[in-house]
Simulated assay, not measured.
Amino acid sequence: MSNRSLHSRIIGTGSYLPPRRVSNGELAHILSTEHGVETSDAWIVERTGIAARHFADAHVASSDLAREAALRAIEAADVDPQSIDLIIVATSTPDYVFPSTACLLQNKLGITNQCAAFDMQAVCSGFVYALATADGLLKSGVHKRALVVGAETFSRLLDFKDRTTCVLFGDGAGAVVLEASGEPGILASALHADGSHVGMLCVPGNVNGGVVQGSAFLHMDGQAVFKLAVSVLDKVAREALERAGCEAGQLDWLIPHQANIRIMQSTCKRLGLPPEKMVVTVHEHGNTSAASVPLALDAAVRDGRIQRGQLLMLEGVGGGFTWGATLLRY
């Protein structure tokens, strides 16, 4: 098979949420009693659509969540883990400064074939960026089978005295196994970034001399993020569709980044899609950053909504500012 005829397709999906589910009511109680911050279930649901999220225990790292999701994807793909020759982990909450979470995951999975492994940092767009990167490497013929994971412990970045951000995020991981194939799977991707918006959504800190310089908490201009996200998600989805010679009406499922139900509904409406064609998990997961798209994908695969042969649009938007979309035939 020549490289020109190579494609990549998803052959297995998996996801994992830490056991601790934190409802809005529980979070409101914690914020009130421990941090002097007042909020309520009704306030959170009205503004975000979020009813609950999952928090990892203190000893659990992003690579631990990634391992569980990866094992489920590998099982679903029914492949030998040693046949995976590329691992990409999308995360903004790595275990260490270095080595990469992907290398840590490789070790935790017991993959000993010395395959390539690296992290992708594009915040909430990270999984789409990683998927497009893996697709390109598989199409080149350099690699044959890839494990792509989005894994986050975003609860570690939250300032629980800021109710505008701390109610939004949760922890989790999602994964897919991709393989090179003569059968088209990923049809087109479009990736973008605009660093002039770096201050809109960021964690503006770094480690220097063993201490954090700047802030290690998440900072966000919510209104600015909302306005930009709605605009770019519509445009990038149409760009991916155009590259593949498809139209929005052909989509079976829209799987957007699960950040805020209002952003998601606006994107769906702009694309002219009925709301029942959009996969929604934000109510139970919150915003899990790079993990949100693969978590939603796996949920819809496992409950039977997504079927082989259907046309899916995956898209994300996040700090950087980054955004991207991938159109694929599942």
Results as ranks from 00 to 15, higher is better:
A70Y: 07
Y129R: 03
A69D: 11
V128Q: 03
N24C: 00
L218I: 00
R72G: 08
C268T: 01
H59T: 15
A102I: 01
A69G: 02
V198Q: 13
G126T: 02
R145S: 07
E38Q: 14
T326H: 12
R270E: 03
I11N: 08
E247R: 15
I255Q: 01
S100K: 10
L6M: 13
G209C: 08
F154I: 13
V123F: 06
R302G: 06
A296I: 04
A56K: 08
K235T: 14
R302T: 09
P204G: 12
P81V: 08
V79C: 06
E284A: 13
L147C: 03
V280N: 09
E75V: 12
F160E: 06
H7V: 09
L295K: 04
H59R: 12
H197E: 15
E75P: 09
S15T: 07
D78A: 15
I306S: 12
S189P: 02
L187H: 03
A173Y: 11
L157W: 05
Q310R: 00
K235E: 15
G36M: 02
S2R: 15
F321T: 06
S215H: 09
V97S: 12
H285Q: 12
E179Q: 12
G318I: 09
R67P: 10
L218N: 03
L297V: 05
E68N: 07
G272F: 04
L109I: 04
R156V: 04
Q307W: 02
Q310W: 00
S8V: 09
R305K: 02
A116V: 08
G309K: 09
H54F: 10
G304N: 01
S15K: 11
H219L: 14
A259I: 00
H285W: 13
R329S: 07
N3T: 15
V37I: 07
V230K: 07
E242C: 14
L157E: 04
M313G: 00
R302F: 05
S32H: 15
G205M: 11
A175I: 02
S215N: 02
A42N: 14
D171T: 09
D252F: 10
S181T: 06
L131E: 01
G309P: 06
G172F: 06
M313T: 03
T281D: 08
V22D: 10
G12C: 09
D298S: 11
G172H: 01
P204V: 09
E38M: 13
S125C: 10
T93R: 05
A299V: 09
A193Q: 13
F118E: 02
T39N: 01
H29G: 15
V60M: 00
V279F: 08
D159H: 12
